[in-house]
Structures are given as C-alpha cells and as structure tokens.
Write a protein that binds this DNA or RNA. Sequence first.
DNA 1: TGTACATCAGTGAACGCGCGTTCACTGATGTAC
DNA 2: TGTACATCAGTGAACGCGCGTTCACTGATGTAC
Lengths: 205, 205
Amino acid sequence: MARGSETRTRILDVAQDSILAKGFEATSIDEIVANAEITKSGFFYHFKDKNALARALIDRYILVEDTLFDDLLGRANELSEDPLQVALIALKLLAELIEDMPGGHPGCVVATAAYQDRLFNKDVRDANRRAVLGWRKRFRAVFDDIATLYPPNDQIDLDHLADMVSGVVEGGIIISRATGQPEITSKQVLLLRSYVKLLFRPKIQ
Amino acid sequence: MARGSETRTRILDVAQDSILAKGFEATSIDEIVANAEITKSGFFYHFKDKNALARALIDRYILVEDTLFDDLLGRANELSEDPLQVALIALKLLAELIEDMPGGHPGCVVATAAYQDRLFNKDVRDANRRAVLGWRKRFRAVFDDIATLYPPNDQIDLDHLADMVSGVVEGGIIISRATGQPEITSKQVLLLRSYVKLLFRPKIQ
DNA sequence: TGTACATCAGTGAACGCGCGTTCACTGATGTAC
DNA sequence: TGTACATCAGTGAACGCGCGTTCACTGATGTAC
C-alpha cells in the first residue's frame, strides 16, 4: 500500500471506532487525528469535509460486508447442493462469525447513518439505501431458490424475509448494546435460522 | 396540566422529533427552544443540562411503550383464552399500530441511545438497559404460557425469542429508514408473528 | 380582606471553549529531458 | 547521471461561528397571618 493510502485507512479505522461508540456528530476531527497520529490538516488532505468521511466509511463498510456475504454463501454452497441447507448453513456461519468477533459485533455503520439521516447529504443517504437494497436482492435470490423446491408453510413475501436478515442483525446489535450482552446478536441470527427451517421444512407425509 | 409542566412536555416533544431525525448531539438546544417557542434559559429551568433531557426522554418513552404493551396484551387477552392465539393477536395488533402511525414509526429513543452510548452518563445507560430487560421479562412470560401448552417445534431459548420482539421492531425501523419504505417495520413484525405461529403450531396428528 | 413573603416559570445578555474549515507553506518522492 | 519541475502527503497557525452553560433579574401566582 502506498504511503498516503495507509494513512487514509488509519483515519477510517479510528473514525469508525469512535463513531460506532458515540455517533457521528459526537466524534470530533480533533479526536480522530489524535488517534490516527496526524495533524488536523492532514485529515483535510484526505477528506474534503466531514461528510466525505461519512461517505467513505459507508462505501468501505458495504464493500467489506459484500465480500463477507460472498464468502459465506460460497462456503455454504460448497457444503451442500440443497438450497434450503445452503441457507441454513450460511446463517449458522453468520452467527458463528458474529459470535467470534472480539468484544462483540463491530456494529453497523449503515444503522448509525440511518439514525442520523437529516445530518447527512443526499450522497451519503443514497449510498446507504443502495446497500440495504443490495442485501435484499442478494438474500431474496437465496430464498427464491428454496421456494421453488420447498413451498413455504406460511404465506409471506420473500422480499420481506430477505430484509429480515439485515433487520435481525441490526436489531440484535441494538439489543446487545442496550443490555451489554454481546452474545445476543448471534442468538438472534440463530432464531432467524430456526424460522427459515420451520418455514420451508417439508411436511412429513 | 400545570403551566410549567405543559412547557416541559412541549420541550420533550420537539426534542424527540429532532433527535430521532438527526441524533442527540446534532440537535442543538437553540433548535429545541426555537421550536418550543421559549428562550434558552427557559430550557435550563426545566432541565439542569442536556443529559437530563436525554434521561427524561428515555423515561417518558419507556412509560409510553409500557402502557402500549399493557393495552395490546390486555385487548388480546379479551379476544382469546388460548395463549398462542393471544400472542398472535397481540403481534397482529402491534403490526397494525405501527402501520397506522402517520409518517411511519416514530422511531425508538432507546435505539438512538444505544448507538450513542459513550456520549451519555451512567444514569441514562442504566435506564436504557432496564427498559430492554423489562420488555424481555414481559414477552418471556407470554411465551412461557404458550410453551406449557404447545411444546415448541424447535429447540430455542425463550429469553432470546422474547428479545426478538424488541429486536425485530428496532431492526425494522432501521431498514425502513435506510430504504425510505415506512411499511417495512410492520411487515417485519408480521414475519415474527409467522415464526411464532410455526414454532408453536401443534403438529397435525 | 390586605399585606408580606415565597415559589414558579421563565427572560436576556454574556461567557468561553471546541468545533469544522482554510490557507500559506514544506519536505519527500516521482517524472521528463 | 544530473537537473528542473510537478505532485504527493502532509504541517502549523489562525479563523469565526455555534454550542452548552451561567447568572442576575422579573412578573405572575400561591400561601401565611
């Protein structure tokens, strides 16, 4: 990595830590540059203003999350050819991944952005929207595959079910944080897995 | 209502609106007093500092939410004596209630607090924790009643299932906000209802 | 019923500090000839 | 291979504005005697 891009990454890292702990507005540039061990002007060399930092964080978060899901579904697809089993394996892997994160899940940049909506410009809000819609599309495809083979045991909209993957993770993070029990998020993912299992499980003939 | 307490309520109302839209730190006291049509010093007559405002908002939110759940479960209990049906009715009523809220769900004060943790003092964080644990206890009792009559079709922890009620609502709000689709939250609650139905539904003999 | 005092529900002006942002400058590295 | 210039990755000092908070004061209402 080039000299400058290394500093940029360090800025994003320390900024993300603070923002997830305190929120965007409450995290000052002074604090970021102190933790990143550069000067304030060094920050403005890499980002034209604070909104540009938010945008960069969301873009990076989406990229990380996307490769994570690619990896998860890829591994699940290697382990089974049955679409229902693939989904159940992927959700199990997701739960394990969240559980193994030291000090709980890193939290979700998209969620903090959602709760500080009017603070950001259109650019940032759009990036956020595209991320969530992208995840919906991705999981929808997984559930479509299952539904063609196993008719669901209840009448539900598969788009909503796809949204539930993101939703349960986000909601789990909030409950984890509020109660101080980091294991909750992965348990919530396992409950979603249980739902998927019951929803598509063929009735015993 | 006494003269002073009316102003206090108006402060809480306008503060909540802004905070849910932009976050706590991003909402200035100047903005609050302008919307509440008082002077800045009037604000400090009612709240000793900004943290006291946060605390008051959380306390009020918990009270409102508690009476809301009391009402919901009370009505559901009138409509059926079967504990599973009571839960399914209550979740349906909750979904309808969320759907009917003009301009989408008002959002959750607890969630914004969870995402701005390090910003608040211990007082505020504790109030937040007690709220979520209270809801867990309440829904746990509902699911316990069901489980004694209908053994669940999957091995799950009923505390986690109880947490899922809060979690699905919180997660739904985030997805709603991120996508700009307000109807999502109520649909997510209906999916949880579908899960409860499949989880406790007696197997056809 | 009138008076004195206390409390309630604020007002208005001022405060200093921290914030995001700008700007002129710089030393190290890369590139053309 | 040496020189001139350009770009990269920052530095350091200063800016003005908005923020949360304080403080002395006030007019209206409530209470004791």
